[in-house]
Design a protein around this nucleic acid. Structure first.
Length: 591
RNA sequence: GGGGCGGUGGUGUAGCCUGGUUACCACGCCGGCCUGUCAAGCCGGAGAUCGCGGGUUCAAAUCCCGUCCGCCCCGCCA
């Protein structure tokens, strides 16, 4: 008899049916006479009963079974005696009275419990990922991930998008993240790069006339990792022709609604829009967490001309002094204040000024410079009452904002500002600067990527004041995490060339790196734009997980290794020889 | 590249600050009892080069130095 049902699907309506099940032995409760076995598969689990008086042979076999053995049983579904119903289990009103049992595969005792909470630390679970994946949290999340990818495909298909695959072996690009390189055996000394995103290919598809493209694209970036950053990840990559930003935003919003619905969440959220400038001014972040207030304020005009040189000189030189009220911070100890100062310095700010406002007046390292009068105004404007603290940073506008933004985030953790109500707050951030200064390279680099279109109103500044040029770009942010972003692209090769020039890229260099794209523009390029959404991050946030490892079947560690396969690993010398690669390892590495 | 935290039977941990008996406890595992359990219960048992290397000491899980691995953060990355 072949498998007739899955374990998790059996209900009262199946009572009386003869069934054949296969699955893993989960729990075995041997009462001496009766043996109960919870049989588990992907769909759930069901209780098997082995009664020596009814099926002696099967009972003998079940006595041998241990956790995680793969077994096959035949039996009859029966409603349980009322007092033995397990309401915690979907299959809890029935059990299978086993008539025949067979062992399919025995199993060693697993290194950790296959339970909702295995109790084991993550590194061990990563080494035995195939066992960890048996646990229901991962089974659930990978099921949701699957359902969400189906929903994305259906939605985008309905919206007229074609799914088109693009190469994994492509060429390295000078901009953006570090590339993963793949040596070419056939072309000694040449390398492919794995795509950081299919950016250029999807633009070329627009030029090819595909109008609306999408792909669940695997992307690779060789940068240091975080809980929300894996070296390889999946983007919902979208590109559309003949569109303005609003078109892309609306398609994306529709897609997010579908995904929320699949995840069983309220599916009609607001998608408020905010400029980059406003996001930094108000929240000190280009990915603001709008689930709580505590916004920053600009106090530059109040401290202009004051005795405290750090502030007055910033005001004179066109910088900004930003302020954040910390309710209850008036009694904060020196330890916490020092931590905030340290955090400010790690954000490259000159420093952090704190003012504690209490019954006995103002307490601050700079109280004597600012004076009671200005301090009173500052507190009034920022609504900093007695018992509160005022935190201020005077610096370059962006640094001042970002620093207080980091502090706002830290305080949100300390003070539990984030509501615990499972809310999902989206917001669009628009009009990012086209370019930004790279301290490392000492030149302007693209903030998004070099194919982003400048804002039409700022075109003439491209040569005169490139840093001030806004772009037609947008990021979607959810609960303070960037989910994805995109832009309208340059579809005219003269503008694209001007952007390359602003990036300090000589025409010859642009031609050699991106000649194929610039050439393509000459053959009738439609205006186009798109977006790329971090699929893993979406799954993570909508499933309430805290790490991408929890929503990825086979994730990598913080040092980009795979503890299960032990990748990356050394390779044979013959393999290296074939690729004409000689190693030059630092001292102490290699074997 | 920098900072923080962690590594003790199969698993999770206590012990470490203040060095010194047989390294605590729980889970799991093995055996026994048990016919309505459901992460079964009760009784018994086995199981640890204290991440690795070096140093200090009469003596190191414990103190010192180095190193590896994991996690979090900054830089980096969109």
């Amino acid at each position: 008899m072949d498998r007739t049902h899955t374990c998790g699907e059996l209900r009262a309506e199946h009572a009386g049916e003869k069934v054949c099940l296969q699955g893993w032995v989960w729990h075995r409760r041997d009462l001496g006479g009766l043996i109960f076995v919870d049989l588990r598969d992907r769909s759930g689990s069901v209780q098997l009963v082995f009664n020596p008086e009814e099926a002696a042979e099967a009972h003998v076999i079940a006595e041998e079974w241990r956790a995680e053995w793969v077994v096959l049983i035949e039996g009859e579904v029966a409603e349980r005696p009322p007092e033995t119903i397990n309401e915690a289990l979907p299959t809890g009103v029935v059990e299978v009275r086993v008539t025949r049992a067979d062992t399919v595969a025995i199993a060693e005792t697993p290194p950790f419990l296959i339970e909702e909470d295995s109790g084991a630390l993550e590194d061990l679970r990563l080494k035995y990922r195939y066992l960890d994946l048996r646990r229901s949290p991962l089974q659930r999340v990978l099921r949701l991930r699957h359902k969400m990818s189906i929903a994305v495909r259906n939605y985008l298909d309905e919206q007229g998008f074609y799914e088109i695959e693009t190469p994994i072996l492509t060429r390295a690009t000078p901009e953006g993240a570090r590339d993963y390189l793949v040596p070419s055996r056939v072309n000694p000394g040449s390398f492919y790069a794995l795509p950081q995103s299919p950016q250029l290919f999807k633009q070329l598809l627009m030029i090819s006339g595909f109008d609306r493209y999408f792909q669940m694209a695997r992307c690779f970036r060789d940068e240091d990792l975080r809980a929300n950053r894996q070296p390889e990840f999946t983007q919902i990559d979208i590109e559309m022709s003949f569109v303005e930003p609003d078109d892309v935003l609306r398609v994306t919003e529709g897609m997010m609604r579908c995904l929320l619905e699949v995840a069983g969440l309220p599916a009609d959220p607001e998608f408020p829009r905010m400029t980059f400038r406003a996001a930094l001014d108000r929240f000190g972040s280009d990915a603001p967490d709008t689930r709580y207030g505590h916004e920053l304020q600009d106090v530059t005009d109040i401290v202009r001309g004051c005795e405290f040189r750090a502030f007055s000189s910033v005001a004179e030189s066109g910088g900004a002094v930003k302020a954040l009220c910390w309710p209850g911070g008036g009694t904060a100890g020196r330890g916490r204040l020092d931590k905030l100062v340290e955090l400010a310095k790690s954000q490259r700010a000159q420093g952090l000024v704190w003012v504690q406002h209490n019954e006995d007046g103002f307490k601050s390292p700079v109280a004597k410079f600012l004076g009671d009068e200005i301090l009173s105004v500052l507190c009034e404007v920022t609504d900093t009452g007695q018992g509160d603290a005022l935190l201020m940073v005077g610096d370059d506008w962006e640094i001042a904002c970002l620093t207080l933004g980091a502090i706002r985030k830290k305080l949100a953790g300390w003070e539990s500002w984030i509501p615990d109500d499972g809310s999902f707050n989206f917001c669009w951030i628009l009009e990012f600067p086209l370019l930004e200064k790279s301290e490392e390279e000492g030149r302007m680099v693209a903030r998004h990527h070099p194919f982003t279109s400048p804002h039409i109103d700022d075109l003439e500044m491209l040569e005169s004041d490139a840093g001030a040029v806004r772009s037609l770009s947008y990021d979607l942010v959810l609960n303070g995490m960037e989910l994805g972003g995109g832009s309208i692209r340059n579809s005219k090769d003269d503008i694209q060339r001007r952007v390359f020039t602003a990036l300090g890229m000589a025409p010859e260099e642009a031609q050699s790196q991106f000649g194929f794209l610039l050439d393509a523009f000459k053959y009738g390029a439609p205006p186009h734009g798109g977006i790329a959404m971090g699929y893993d991050r979406i799954v993570m946030l909508l499933s309430g997980e805290k790490s991408l490892r929890s929503v990825t079947a086979f994730p990598k560690t913080a040092s980009a290794t795979d503890l299960m396969t032990a990748a990356p690993a050394a390779v044979d010398e013959e393999q290296l020889d074939a690729l004409h690669i000689a190693l030059d390892l630092p001292d102490g590495s290699g074997d």
